[in-house]
Structures are given as structure tokens and as C-alpha cells.
Amino acid sequence: MNTVHSIKEVRNEIKKWRKEGLTVGLVTTMGFLHEGHESLIKRASEENDRVVVSIFVNPTQFGPNEDLEAYPRDIKRDETVCEKAGANLIFNPDPSEMYYDDASTTVNVAGLTEGLCGAKRPVHFGGVCLVVSKFFNIVTPDRAYFGEKDAQQLAVIKRMVRDLNFDIEIVGCPIVRESDGLARSSRNIYLSNEERKAALILNKSLNLAKQSLNEGERDANKVKDIIIEKLNSESLAKVDYVEIVDSSNLKPAFNINKPVLVAIAVYIGKTRLIDNFTFKM
């Protein structure tokens, strides 16, 4: 496995693989890899001849008061995870390699980005779409793999690929959880021991909602109330949002008569965590 830092190096490697008729999978990450990322890389290695993992803390998707500088980084650890999971190439560029000082091009997916996380993070998905589209152009993968924990991001990427006619299959992969139910996240490292225990409230609240839906509740507001009541029972939890939206367009759902995404964002102390599940009729 190789780690490279320039676009030219990536393209040279891809050209060699293409001459051999090999398929290429891509996993885009911001590093500090956990078991969730590892599962994406493993799946990509099972379904493709070669796998590229990008490790890049992308500045364009962070707002002015967000944790760009504090975001955890450990490239040596990441290299170990990638090699173990079956990656063949790591692309770890500097921001100056990815962005020109006078860059003026943006990529925006309207409609899917205004709600959920996009409501409080107005620059986030524009940054995600820009950097992912650049990785797609640099790597030209056959398939790209994204976790379902970032459900809105997955929906946005799928729409961008459709609208811009990228010849890439987008593969969504299930949420990977700790043994106690907490969704794996690079931001979990920010949690103190007490906050780590408190964070279990996210999955517990979603499980109550799932139970209610399985028992026949179809009023979205009543299901949301169940989640909010459970979240409010934890003193360290502060609700950012609780939403139930149509899975296809991410518009708010009221009477649940088609597949919906049940999504939450919660602050545990200063750490913002997200979780979700999809309910299919």
C-alpha cells in the first residue's frame, strides 16, 4: 500500500490500473479512521480490484465557528487501518494541492441541503459536494462508498452524481455501532467518560421511535415527541434537531405512508453527534 500527496501521483497510479483492466473503488474520509470507515474500505476491497482512500480534512465544509483546527488527525494510525482493511492507495493531500488560491467554482445541490444538518451548517454541503466531485474527477472510480450514518450526505452525493452524470455507482453502507449501540464517529474521541455514557441516549431514543413505528404509529409528530422526551431525560444532552423526512426528497413527513428517514442531531456537552434510521413500509 502506498500513501501519496499529489494529484499527479494518484492519476499515474490509476492509469496503470486502467491499462490492466482493473476496477477501482473509492472511500472518501477526513481521517482519524474508525471501524465504520474500516467497514467501507473492506466492502470496497471485496467489490473492486483496487481501492483508493482519500484522507483529507476538507476546509471548505467547515463553518467559521466549527472545529477545523481541532478535528483529530493521525495519519500513521490511518495507514495501519487502511492496509489492514485492504486499501491499495491513500491520497493525503494538503489543502494547497486541492484548492487554488483564486478558485471560483462551487457545487451546490439545491433542495436536499436546506434541512437537517444543512439548516445549521449552511456552507457544509457545498464544501462536501465540491471536494467529493474533485475526488471523483481525480480518481475516476467505478464505485464510491459512503456510510449511512451521514444519511443526508449520502442522499446529496447520489443526487449530485445523477445530475452531473458521473459514471460512478454510489454504494451506501450500514451504520457501524459500538457494542452498546453508539454509532461510530471520529468525534466520539471528544467525549469524556461521563459524556460517553450520556451519548447512548441517541440510540435509545431512536429505538423507542422504531418500536412505536413497528407497533403502527403513523403520526410523525407523535414519533418525534417520543424521541424528544427520551433525549430530554438526559441532562447532558441538548437537542439540535429531531426530524422525520421523506427518504426520497428529505422533505418533512407528517403522515407516515412511505419510507422515511428518522434523523437526530444532539449535543453531548460540546460535541455534536448524529444518528438515524430508515423506516420502510
Rank of each mutant, 00 (worst) to 15 (best):
K158E: 06
P141Y: 06
V139S: 11
R121G: 06
D150Y: 02
E114D: 14
Y99N: 09
E97P: 00
N88I: 11
G126W: 04
G111A: 10
I90S: 06
Y99D: 04
F166T: 01
F91P: 02
K149H: 11
D167Y: 12
V139H: 05
R162K: 13
L116F: 03
F125T: 01
I168E: 12
P122R: 02
E97V: 01
K120P: 12
A155P: 05
P141A: 05
V109P: 00
P141I: 03
V156L: 07
C129S: 09
G147Q: 12
V132W: 03
T113S: 11
N165Q: 15
Y99E: 12
N165E: 15
R162L: 13
P95M: 12
V132S: 01
T105A: 15
M160W: 02
G118E: 03
C129D: 04
T140V: 14
Y99F: 11
C117L: 14
F136R: 00
G111D: 01
T140M: 14
S104D: 15
L89P: 02
D94W: 04
M160E: 01
V123H: 13
Q152F: 09
C129G: 04
N92T: 11
K120I: 15
I170Y: 13
G115Q: 13
F166S: 00
K120D: 15
K149E: 13
Y99S: 02
A87K: 07
K120Y: 13
D150E: 05
I157V: 08
S104P: 10
